[in-house]
Structures are given as structure tokens and as C-alpha cells.
Design a protein around this nucleic acid. Structure first.
Lengths: 360, 360
DNA sequence: CTGAAAGCGCTTACAG
DNA sequence: CTGAAAGCGCTTACAG
């Protein structure tokens, strides 16, 4: 069915204003409109202006699907995180999404639940959508996942972790297979150093029986554990019975339970370093219920400086981690990679900070 | 440049396995493959089987962009929520996303920050991507936003709220413009009733000076306020000075601050009903620091039953809201709408529950 | 610097 | 029930 298309603004069956329409009313070819709109050089400035004006007047909006089909790449970025129940990752997600959106990209989120199989499945799914880029938590991935990433050629930045620097002992302790990628772009901080720093802080406070209490036991938690071990061994106060490792997900309740158990079984413990603030908060609350005074009887320290840690009683001593900045910087780095640029610092260390409050 | 395409498996320049490839090796037309794959009726069962087998062997995956372009609708659903810093919405998001993903849809999230302008902007952006459906928080939207939704014809389900039932006084109090949509599909619960129920609970406990302390002041918070007013007026103990309304975002710290102020300025208050658990948790923590005993000196109640409320000391009495179920049910309802079905219950009330713990 | 033409990989009336 | 053909709305070599 032909339509009389000699009107200046011919209508498609979909009623959508297309690049064709813009070209027609601007009096140039579709190719030129396409180039002008995307700010490609090699277009006459006057034409660019005209095209921009017309497309504005017409209220033209490029069709993402058509663009993706023609160019073979979409305008969305996939971000894979372990959980949404840990504020840490929500902060990461929010920051990354904000940065990406500003640059014109859509963020697609996948939740892996710390499960390599789920991670692989999600990645496979997402890859079918030809994401422009990939943000993925951690440096530890299954062989299959790594293969998928490499073969897809999709630019990728890893979050919250950095490759182990070759520091003898620590590197030796690290059971994680090193990524086979040529250049693993990543932004995070040294988890091991952070674990070590907090432990040294406790040591300086005169603590000698320092428990490391952890949940989830994901690779980053394990790195904190190594840092703790290193510091204790160096101080000559390491003891395997000081390790309380629970693979269950981290939560306030679990922290409370672990605290009760530790207090019951190891009355001489004088400090507990929890691998995450929710555990530590739960412990603080449990201490209150049990009438255990913190920090005089036992000091309590956490990790991440999550919401509420400063409001606890006593306020929680913890390690502040730059998660929002990680999200933003990683997004920015990814944007560079998408543009074909090479980041000056492929492994960005954003550091951490010991926040000394009253609980330790 | 022509390629010798007489090989059984001709290659595209992109190297991707296409529907064409499946058609060729299955010995049927592309149209048939398309129909068979999407489970359209009117295809010979034998052919369907063959097509499925071949596409499996070849590892064929439909191209979402091509599909979206040809069919004029994508496989993603947009969800608009106010904030990510309130666990409530994270729970909502996670549940909805999970349900949607199972049905083969991608979830695109937008954060409005309770800002009508941002909401409109996000919606406009998302609409360009031709979402298959829309999940949006609340029933309150700007005129422009409502127009956008209507004109787009995109199926939409509203979250966490229900239209005011015509109950005289309450309806009269409601300043929110009723949606002009023909059938506003929504799943939530009666915020007003929940506010009223908790207030009555406190009244039954013998409290007579019950403060309503609220932050953010979004429409749902205001509905809880009306419920509180209604109960107090009915009991003859309403007093405008009992309303503590702060437009700042809800947080633990704000709760602590509000608690201090209330205690200072109104020493005869015997109960405080906070509009959200984070405020109440902050108040509980402040009470502890200040040495104010809860609930004997003052009772404290919250709303939503967020993480940690059961771990507080004393444990927080609150209203448990079905946010995960809201996310799931709303997604399910949206899926029906996308399929062109009509939900039996267009306005789904999932209720709420008073959780009586020690704080009130 | 600009344009005509082909092509991205599907879906969908329209015939048969 | 099946297929040939047109079309979705862009981008991108290829010429000029």
C-alpha cells in the first residue's frame, strides 16, 4: 500500500519520526544526518547545525534497536554483582549506573548470588544482547566465564579487587587462579592490605587475642583474612582457633550468633574483627543484650563502614571502603575502553581508610 | 561482494548464526523458523520439532535488536523506583527483576529520587527504547508523566499503592490527583489503613500522646499520616503539635535527631510512630545513648519491618509490608498485560501485618 | 565532505 | 499450514 509521500513529512506506518524524515526536511542524505547526529568529524559544520536544528524541531529520537542492529553494538552495559542485600553492592550499582547513564548508556544488572554457575549463565544471556561493555565484580571467575568474556571482545572492567602484587608470602597464600586475560582492567583497593591494617590497629590498641570472624567467604573476604593472618603472625600472636569462618551469607543476625558463640567458647578473646559491618553491627547489638561491654571487655571492628555503623552504640570502628568511587571510576574506565581509548592506569587502586570510633 | 553461499552453513560478515542459517539447514523458510521458535500456533508439529533441534545444534540465539526492530517491541521492562538507599525498594526491585527474568525479560531500572521532573525524564528516555512494559512506584505522577504513559500504550503496573477507596473522610483528605487512566493496574496495600492500624495498636497499649514522626513525606508516608490522624481523632487525642514532619530523606541519623528533639520539646509524649524503620532504628539507638528507656518512658514503633529491626534493643514493633510479594505480583500482572490478557484483580491488595515486639 | 546502496537479522501481512 | 517479499530504522563501506 503506497502512501502519498510528497508531503514534507511523510509518515511511516509506525508513526515514528525517523532519520529519513530529518534528512528530507533538512535537505541532506540520511548518511549525513547519521554522521552529524553522532558528532562524527568530516561533516560540514553548517550542515551539522542544520541537522541538529531540524532533528530538534521534529523531536527526532534515534531508535536504539535499529542502531544496535546496524552497528552491531548496543547502548547498554551489563553489571554483574553478587548480591543486592549487601548495601556495598547497591552503592556500587548506583554510582556506576549514574555515570553510565550520563554518558548515554543503559545499565543492565545481573545478580549472581556468589554462584559461578549463575554468573556464567547471566553473562551468556547478557552477551546475546551485545552489551557495549561489562562491569563485573571480582577477579575470580570460572574458566568458562573467562572464555566467554575473552571471546566476546566486550570491554570489561572488574570491580572491588586488584590483582595480587607479587609480595611473596601474600601471593603464596592466594589460591585464586590468576586471570588469563592480557590486561585485566580493574578498580578497587587492596583487600589484603585493608585486613592487615585493621589488625595492626587492633594490635596497637594492645589487643592480643584477635578473632577474625567472617561470613560468605568470598575471595575478597579471604584476602582480608590473609591480611589479618599476616599481621598476627608477624606479631607472634597467631592461632588457628582465632579463625571463625562461616560460609553463610553475611547478616546482622549471623553477626549476633557468631558473637554469642565466640564469647561462650573463647572467653579470653579481647577483640573481634568482623569481615563486614552488618556482622559487626549484629555483634554490637548482641553485646548490648548480653550486657557485654564494648570495647572494655571485647573490642569490635567491622569492614566497609556501612549505613548505621556510626550510629551504633558504641559507634563502630571500621574500614571505610570507596565503593561509590569504585562504581564511578570503573564506569568511567569502561567508557574509555568502549571509545577505544587506553586507560592510563589499568589497575586503579582507590585505597581505604581506618575509621577509629569507640567500639575498638 | 558476493560470497559462495552454496555451503550448507553460509557465514555472515558478523559471524553470527542467524535465523537464516537455521532455516537453510532445517530446509524450511525463515518465516517458518520464526514462527516455530516463538511457539506460534499454526505450524506443523513435526516442523517445529525439526526447527528446534536444528537451532539447538547450531547454537542459534535470536538477536534481540533485530527482533525489536522488526516487531516494534523490545524484551525489556522498565522499573522506576524513588531510591536505592531504602531497602524497601531494593527488595521490590530484586523480586520484580527475578520474576521478569524468568519470563525472558530484561529489567531496566530508573531512580527518580522522588523527583517528578526526574521521573518524567527517565520515563521519556525509557519510552524511546520501546519497553514491553512499565513498573512504576506510586500512583502519583505529574500530568506530563501520565500523558506519556497513556500515549505510549505501554502496559503499566503501579507499585506499593492502591487508589483511595471512597471512604468519605479519608478520601477528602487526599490531595493527590486521581490518575486519569482508565484502569490503573496496581499492586500494593492500603497505606492509610496500615497507619491507622499501628496507631490503634498504640492506643490499645494505653498510649495517649502519640507522635507521628515522618521524613521524606512522599504520598505513601502522607497516607500513613492520615491513618494516624483518623485514629487519634476518633480516640479524641489528636493534637497538631503531635505531627513531626521533616521533608529530608529518611535515615538512621535523622531518626536519632528527631527523637532527641521530640524528647526535648515534648517530654509528655509516651509513644512515637515513625513512618519508616530506619528512623525508628535511629531513635532506638539514640534512646540508648541518652538513657531513655523504651518502651516504659516512651514507646517506639516503625514501618516496613526492614533488616535489623528484629535485632534492635529492644526489638522494634513495626508494620510488616509485603514488598517482595508486591514486586513479584506486579511483575506477574505486567506479564499478563504484555500478553494481552486482562488481570482478574486489577488492583491487588496484598495487605500488611502489625509485628508486635518489645519497643511498643 | 557527501550520497546511493547494501545490509544488520528479524517479523508480519499477504498470497497460496 | 507455509513461503516470498517487504519492511523495521539505522550504519557503513564504497564511490565520488
Amino acid at each position: 500500500m503506497k502512501q502519498a509521500s510528497d508531503r514534507s513529512k511523510s509518515q511511516r506506518s509506525t508513526g515514528r519520526i525517523t532519520l529519513q524524515d530529518v534528512a528530507r526536511t533538512a535537505g541532506v542524505s540520511p548518511s549525513t544526518v547519521s554522521r552529524a547526529l553522532r558528532g562524527e568529524r568530516a561533516v560540514d559544520p553548517d550542515l551539522v547545525e542544520r541537522v541538529l536544528l531540524v532533528s530538534d524541531q521534529l523531536g527526532y529520537v534515534p531508535d536504539p534497536a535499529a542502531r544496535a542492529l546496524a552497528s552491531q553494538r548496543s547502548d547498554h552495559v551489563t553489571i554483574l554483582i553478587p548480591l543486592l542485600s549487601n548495601t556495598l553492592f547497591v552503592d556500587l550499582l548506583e554510582a556506576a549506573q549514574k555515570t553510565l547513564r550520563t554518558a548515554g548508556f543503559q545499565t543492565l544488572m545481573g545478580v549472581t548470588h556468589y554462584n559461578p554457575i549463575e554468573e556464567e549463565l547471566l553473562l551468556r544471556e547478557q552477551l546475546h544482547h551485545r552489551p557495549a561493555g561489562l562491569l563485573i565484580t571480582g577477579l575470580d571467575h570460572s574458566q568458562a566465564t573467562q572464555k566467554l568474556m575473552e571471546r566476546s571482545k566486550v570491554p570489561c572492567v572488574h570491580l572491588m579487587d586488584l590483582p595480587i602484587s607479587d609480595q611473596g608470602d601474600v601471593a603464596a597464600l592466594n589460591p585464586i587462579s590468576t586471570s588469563t586475560e592480557a590486561v585485566p582492567y580493574c578498580v578497587g583497593f587492596r583487600q589484603t592490605d585493608a585486613g592487615e591494617a585493621m589488625t595492626k590497629y587492633l594490635l596497637l590498641k594492645g589487643k592480643t587475642h584477635i578473632v577474625f570472624a567472617a561470613a560468605q567467604l568470598d575471595p575478597r573476604v579471604m584476602q582480608r583474612l590473609w591480611g589479618w593472618r599476616k599481621a598476627l603472625k608477624q606479631a607472634g600472636v597467631y592461632n588457628a582457633s582465632l579463625e571463625w569462618l562461616n560460609p553463610a551469607p553475611s547478616s546482622l543476625i549471623l553477626g549476633a550468633q557468631m558473637f554469642e558463640q565466640i564469647m561462650k567458647q573463647s572467653p579470653d578473646v579481647d577483640a573481634i574483627f568482623f569481615c563486614n559491618d552488618d556482622l559487626a553491627q549484629g555483634a554490637l547489638l548482641a553485646a548490648m543484650r548480653m550486657g557485654v561491654s564494648v570495647p572494655s571487655k571485647v573490642a569490635i571492628a567491622g569492614f566497609n563502614d556501612l549505613t548505621g555503623s556510626d550510629q551504633m552504640w558504641p559507634p563502630l570502628t571500621t574500614v571505610k571502603t570507596p565503593r561509590a568511587q569504585v562504581g564511578e571510576s570503573a564506569a568511567q574506565m569502561l567508557l574509555q575502553l568502549i571509545r577505544g581509548e587506553t586507560p592510563e592506569v589499568p589497575q586503579l587502586d582507590l585505597g581505604f581508610e581506618i575509621i577509629s570510633r569507640q567500639s575498638a
